[in-house]
């Protein structure tokens, strides 16, 4: 299933906390511009896998190639470059609490772009407008709702036009309307920029709307329990556990 044109591949990946392996034998690949959803029961290692795929954490074994760079073999500078070309939305949005939303978006731009201050300001305002926060630019993270913080987090994740964006539970805790808007935003970003998106989610409707592929992490076997287009899991087939997860049916 690996292809040299894939933007992300991992083979025999093992992840965990400390020296404790929680998932291993993970093999994945993703073509550019595709949306991959990582699903599974709580605590199965979805966020840990996402962090390992993005190069934020060292895996316990195996090989990950992101944008053609082997993350394990990459030196400090290469790793920095890869991280710079990636965007992350963390579960709690992780906005810098003492900066306004605009300053949060401007921060990576000021660090990495040589553009004049005026252009950076213009760019930050545009990114915030993209996620519908044009009126909240000068607010502090403590002054906005959880949904707005998530959207601001996405705006910061795409501040530098990254090739890959990692989203950790983007629609968790959002009302259905906001969640739907967020899904629409994700799809439009992919369409407009061709961004590859890897997201961790529990929201089945959201996954069905946005993801091209879905990987199910099975805590019982400690590896991938199912892989494919999410709509395929709605039909009972080879992966009854994944089907049960998707249809929220009881599985014994």
């Amino acid at each position: 299933m690996n292809d040299t044109s894939d933007i992300l591949t991992c083979t025999g990946l093992a992840i965990g906390h400390g020296k404790t392996v929680i998932m291993d034998r993970l093999n994945l690949s993703l073509a550019p511009g595709k949306i991959l959803a990582i699903v599974g029961p709580s605590g199965c290692g979805k966020s840990t896998l996402m962090r390992a795929l993005g190069g934020l954490d060292e895996p316990l074994g195996g090989k990950t190639t992101l944008m053609g760079v082997d993350l394990a073999a990459a030196d400090g500078q290469q790793r920095q470059d890869i991280l710079r070309q990636s965007g992350f939305l963390f579960q709690g949005a992780a906005l810098f609490s003492s900066l306004t939303l605009r300053e949060n978006i401007e921060m990576p731009m000021r660090e990495f772009l040589k553009a004049p201050r005026k252009d950076i300001r213009q760019l930050a305002e545009y990114k915030l407008a993209l996620v519908g926060l044009a009126d909240a630019m000068d607010k502090l993270p403590s002054e906005i709702s959880g949904g707005m913080a998530k959207r601001a987090g996405i705006a910061r994740a795409m501040a530098l036009d990254p090739a890959v964006i990692f989203l950790d539970e983007p629609s968790a805790g959002l009302d259905p309307l906001s969640s739907g808007r967020l899904d629409e935003l994700i799809l439009r970003l992919r369409e407009a920029y061709g961004t590859t998106i890897i997201l961790v989610s529990h929201e089945i409707p959201s996954i069905l709307r946005t993801a091209d592929f879905c990987v199910y992490l099975d805590p019982d076997t400690g590896t991938i329990g199912g892989y494919g287009p999410p709509k395929g899991f709605l039909q009972a087939g080879n992966s009854p556990k994944v089907h049960a997860f998707f249809t929220q049916a009881r599985f014994d």
């Binding site: 407008a129 993209l130 519908g132 044009a134 009126d135 630019m137 935003l185 439009r188 369409e191 407009a192």
Partner: peptide, 14 residues
């Protein structure tokens, strides 16, 4: 066009 239209207009008194 899509990228421009996606950005909602900021309020005029902002």
């Amino acid at each position: 066009q899509s990228l421009v239209q996606m950005a909602e207009k900021a309020s005029s008194d902002h």
